[in-house]
Amino acid sequence: MHFRRFILGAIASAPMLAAMAGAAQALPPDQAKSFITQSGDKLVGIVNGGGSESQKAGQLRDLVNQIVAVDQVGDYVLGRYNNVATPAQKQQFQTLFHQLLSYNITYQIKAYQGVTFTTNSATPQGDDVLVDTTIATPGKAPADVGWVVEDDAGQPKIIDVIVAGTSLRITTRNDYAGVITDNGGQVSALLNAMQNQISKISAAQ
């Protein structure tokens, strides 16, 4: 029961991966709520709007780059291996991470047709704000999704997505760490796996 619930919730929010950002100012909850409402409306507008799938994918990629702190996502996901990776590996990782994020966001856009997005409450969490929303897709149970928003140089940005108590940034970090530890702690193995994944997905699209 619980396993079903968390997986369903996690997937409902798949278009939004996020990351830890650096030190920031406290963000007013109302501003965070308004930001998430506007972002959600844009997301729904793209998914349910006209245009081809590739056009929608492009629009979604642009939107995510605007509302998610993608570079910090990469830093957080790489975690302690930031101290192991060479500067060139870090740069390559960020490039691949941006590409992979784009592919993951646009994966199965059709499955989200008819999605609706409702913003509920906003709760301060230290300097960040957790905005609770409900995402409903036709034929599926509604999912409660929490968005952690931070002030990033004066702009609100999403830094994590919480679904049924699971953090997507932590899940992704553990996913990537699994690849590195299974390959003797080599960051190059992660970069290869990411490149292979990109090749596989782009070949399938």
């Binding site: 996690a10 997937i11 108590g165 932590i170 690849v179 994944q197």
Partner: peptide, 24 residues
């Protein structure tokens, strides 16, 4: 659909399911 998506997007689905289970 959710499991298909995890398998398609995770680099290490075993580690991903383990992480999701523990957090949950």
């Amino acid at each position: 659909q959710p499991i298909d998506q995890i398998k398609a997007t995770a680099l290490d689905p075993y580690a991903t399911f383990r992480s999701l289970y523990r957090q949950s």
